Simulated scan of single mutants.
Amino acid sequence: MTNKDLLKIAHQHGTPVYVYDAESIRLQYEKLTSSFHSHTRFFYAAKALTNINILKYIESLGAGLDCVSINEVRLGLRAGFTNDRILFTPNCVDLKEIEDAMELKVHINIDNISILEQFGNRYGSSYPIFIRINPHIYAGGNHKISTGHIDSKFGISIHQLRHIERVMKSTNLLVEGLHMHTGSEIKDPDVFLQGLEIMFELAEHFPDLKYLDMGSGFKIPYQEGDLETDVKTLGKKVEKALSAYQKETGKKFQLWFEPGKFLVGNSGHFLVKANVIKQTTATVFCGINSGFNHLIRPMFYDSYHLIENLSNPRGAQRIYTVVGNICETDTFAWDRKLNEVRESDVLVFRNAGAYGFEMSSNFNSRLKPAEVLFLDGKAHLIRKRDEFEDLLRNQIEIL
């Protein structure tokens, strides 16, 4: 997909609009599958982007689906994923949501002692489960997206193993999988090897184990000089570790990973229009027709998105602070070099496929943007832009 294609989409569908390149998603998935042995399976982390067309496309590539809510499970089934290719890993939900997932016959991952005991007392060994372990490995980028540290709400601490064993023994639980996820944007492949070694130690306590799920956290580059997780090196190291373990113990497990941002992050392009160029005594603001109601990542955890001027790519470079149009401080970039921006120029935010639209809102009663999938050389509208009536759709007027 070229910049010319993006400009055409902006003119055809208006801005703001999210555009996803299917070819980019396919290449990222093939990068993973070619880097690991055939006994490794990949489950797309749906929370990154759940448009039904994206789910259908990823299903067609052969991936499974990692879900964190019961509605993501339902979306996955509707998109064509079979129940054996869906893993449900909720957090801080009650037993009812677990039971809803049981009715849909998907893999279930339990991440706290309370639900483990309730589930075991009610269902025993009648339904096999995964257990999510907190390995106390601090990994990932911003602290807001690190999930394996000691203060994390996710998973059951490795130091609570004896408690898990007591629940298993007293309720006859059937544990077929162990899961851990330490965070996002992990640059060092050895972090995964550290987690795998912990998994090997824990495996001795679970006689019916079939699956080891390492979560994900593969990093993608956002700006020049950024590193991407070296999945080829990781694949070789993981294969070596699994082979050594199998030779030593005679046990063989299927290994799972849950890439989300790694698959869809680079595929996404967020197109906006420059509304105003505002010169102050200290700064030149480029005010666009969006805000953190559409792309919250820069404000939420200081994420970087490359911004380019598609309308004036050869213009002289000037320094702008790019801000939004909502009634909050919503700064996307401070003192960023851009080719000269004129009012009505179309700008693009790169690497906007993951957690962009998915975290959007109607704050300030602004309308959510449209979504477009670029597939087989054609742009397909896959979500209409909100209309005014959408703001009132579920409101009940009593006055």
Rank of each mutant, 00 (worst) to 15 (best):
D21F: 06
E224Y: 11
L381A: 02
S24Y: 06
Q254E: 12
R318Q: 14
L306K: 15
R132G: 02
I156A: 04
I9L: 00
S35M: 05
N339A: 08
N112L: 06
F332P: 03
I156V: 09
G268W: 13
E387L: 07
R78E: 15
F388L: 14
K278L: 15
G268V: 12
A203M: 09
R342D: 11
G287L: 15
P90I: 07
R26T: 04
N71F: 12
P313F: 08
M168I: 10
P259H: 07
I150A: 15
F349S: 05
M168L: 10
V167G: 00
P207A: 04
R78T: 15
T82N: 10
K232V: 14
G265M: 07
I164N: 06
G324W: 08
L212D: 01
S361R: 05
I396K: 10
S216H: 01
I398Y: 05
L32W: 03
E387G: 04
R162Y: 03
K378E: 11
N91V: 15
I145T: 12
T2S: 15
V372G: 00
L234T: 12
L310D: 11
Y127R: 10
P221C: 03
G140E: 12
E239Q: 02
I156L: 05
F253W: 05
R336D: 09
N71Y: 14
H39C: 01
K236P: 01
K144G: 04
K144C: 01
Y222Q: 11
M102Q: 05
L338A: 06
S152Y: 06
K384E: 15
R385V: 00
R366V: 01
Q194A: 12
L95K: 06
K261C: 10
V106E: 01
M102A: 03
I58A: 04
A79M: 07
H149D: 15
N51V: 01
K31M: 01
I319R: 14
G268T: 13
R314D: 14
D376P: 07
C67V: 12
Y320E: 13
E343A: 12
L391Y: 03
F257I: 05
I131N: 02
Y18T: 00
A370C: 04
M359N: 13
Q279V: 13
N134W: 10
F357Q: 09
I398L: 13
T40P: 02
T233W: 04
N3W: 08
D330A: 15
P90Q: 08
Q194W: 07
N3S: 09
L306H: 11
L367H: 05
C286H: 08
N362K: 05
D100M: 14
M180I: 01
V341I: 00
Q279F: 08
S24H: 12
G195D: 10
S360F: 03
N312P: 06
K8Q: 10
M102S: 02
L242R: 06
Y301R: 14
N293H: 15
E117N: 01
F270R: 03
K105A: 03
Q279A: 13
H159M: 03
T89L: 08
C67M: 11
N112R: 08
S38R: 02
H179L: 07
L367R: 04
G250P: 00
D94K: 14
L77K: 09
M180N: 12
V167H: 03
A46H: 08
R297E: 13
A45Y: 02
S38A: 05
E371A: 09
